[in-house]
């Protein structure tokens, strides 16, 4: 029985969400509210179960020092009190300090030195195509850095270099846009493949009938 009921519920919710493509309606609103509600409930469950596993259970087993991060976490809520809101900055400082420390210490060897090392290659070891690609990447990199240099006016040869930088960025953004279009389309395709199966494909007929009925009613008005 559940093999029929579950796909029908899932299919109905999918079509309710898609109904916005036709026009704003109550079915879409219901789907939206359900989505937000279930999402929040699930997130709350995950958060509490994680807190239980990584903090509460170890605390009960004798790791008393875990009370320190808990106190820092609770201090974040003092932001709602004008009198004690300065305490929330201590917690924020701890979070930001630890985050920056972990990120910055590794950013230099990986994201700066590692990337510069990648640009420094022996030309003799590259094929003609790789060499052309490497030269283009190097010029684009220098041009893009030049574009974000605001202490020198973008005129003359420097203006030309910044234009190369701007075109390079436009090409990169275009490439990202194309990939985004593809990545988002695949979600629709997966749902379509799901809706094409029995029994949920029957819902497509109902959806079409709904739209035809609505068009008829609107025309009559």
């Amino acid at each position: 029985m559940s093999e029929v009921i579950t796909p029908l519920i899932v299919g109905t919710l999918t079509l309710m969400a898609w109904s916005l493509l036709y026009r704003e309606n109550v079915f879409y609103r219901i789907a939206e509210v359900l989505m937000v509600g279930f999402g929040m409930g699930y997130t709350l469950y995950i958060s509490l179960s994680t807190l239980n596993r990584v903090w509460f259970q170890p605390l009960l087993s004798g790791k008393w020092w875990l009370i320190i991060p808990a106190i820092l976490g609770l201090l974040l809520y003092t932001i709602y009190s004008r009198r004690y809101m300065f305490l929330s900055r201590w917690a924020m400082a701890a979070i930001a300090g630890a985050g920056s420390g972990y990120a910055v210490s590794r950013a230099i060897p990986v994201m700066i030195i590692g990337q510069i090392e990648g640009l420094a290659v022996k030309f003799s070891e590259l094929s003609a195509l790789d060499l052309a690609n490497h030269i283009i990447a190097t010029i684009a990199c220098i041009g893009t850095v030049a574009y974000f240099t605001f202490t020198k006016e973008h005129k003359g040869w420097f203006g030309g270099l910044t234009r190369i930088g701007r075109w390079s960025m436009m090409l990169a953004f275009g490439s990202t846009f194309g990939a985004t279009l593809y990545a988002n389309q695949i979600f629709t395709i997966e749902r379509a493949a799901f809706l094409a199966k029995y029994p949920q494909n029957l819902l497509l007929i109902i959806a079409v009938l709904f739209i035809v009925y609505d068009l008829f009613i609107r025309k009559k008005r």
Binding site: V110, G114, Q115, E117, A137, A172, T176, A179, T180, A183
Partner: peptide, 15 residues
């Protein structure tokens, strides 16, 4: 797929 173009510098350097 949408983040692949931004990742290519790491591929090019072998990281």
């Amino acid at each position: 797929a949408d983040i692949v173009p931004q990742v290519m510098p790491y591929i090019n350097t072998g990281q």
